[in-house]
């Protein structure tokens, strides 16, 4: 399968992970979507030299996205003028710092519960639960041991307790595929 086809296949799942990581909800997020776009572009640019395919490509995409998200948060903290967009720029979440009122709707509560997790715990939880990676794969993406991964997962689950179920947004009438431009 050509690299662009594989990237196209990965794009929706990568988008899902990015949105969950960045905003805690499935709705559109400029930051998350731009991150995904940038990761796909970078991988496409480096595709011929990386020679990744299948599972390795998948792991590479998630590794890159996770790292860039961390770097982005770090840059936001240092710059002091980051665009928030419901994003958790603090390890314990904005609510942990007592800055935001507790949201009312189930969707907001759900997002808030995810964002209240420390970033490392959120990453571990989302990679395992949402993206379905094995412990070994998730540990590889996060560059940690399996033991540390399980510890983060356990902390995340303990913190979440009974996570409120959100109302999922209505699905679009017709799903349009995403395309990579091809020059031929």
């Amino acid at each position: 399968m050509a690299l662009r086809d594989e990237l196209n296949l990965c794009a929706p799942r990568l988008c899902r992970y990015a949105r969950a990581l960045v905003t805690g909800h499935p709705g559109p997020s400029e930051i998350a979507d731009d991150l995904v776009h940038a990761v796909l572009l970078r991988t496409w640019e480096a595709g011929t030299t990386l020679r990744l395919d299948g599972r390795d490509l998948h792991l590479h995409l998630y590794t890159l996205l996770t790292e860039w998200h961390r770097e982005r948060l770090a840059a936001g903290r240092m710059g002091g003028k980051a665009h928030m967009e419901n994003e958790n720029f603090h390890a314990g979440g904005p609510r942990a710092a007592g800055n935001l009122p507790f949201p009312a709707s189930p969707r907001d509560k759900f997002a808030a519960a995810l964002l209240d997790l420390a970033l490392q715990e959120r990453e571990a939880l989302l990679l395992i639960v949402l993206e379905g990676f094995s412990y070994a794969q998730a540990a590889r993406i996060l560059k940690i041991s399996r033991t540390v991964l399980v510890m983060r997962l356990a902390r995340a689950r303990a913190a979440l307790s009974e996570i409120p179920a959100p109302k999922t947004p209505a699905r679009p009438a017709k799903a349009r595929p995403s395309y990579l431009r091809v020059v031929k």
Binding site: P12, R16, R19, P26, L130, T168, R171, P172
Partner: peptide, 11 residues
Amino acid sequence: AFAPVETGPVP
């Protein structure tokens, strides 16, 4: 909660 993202259009 995140199922619609995978099956929905990529923006």
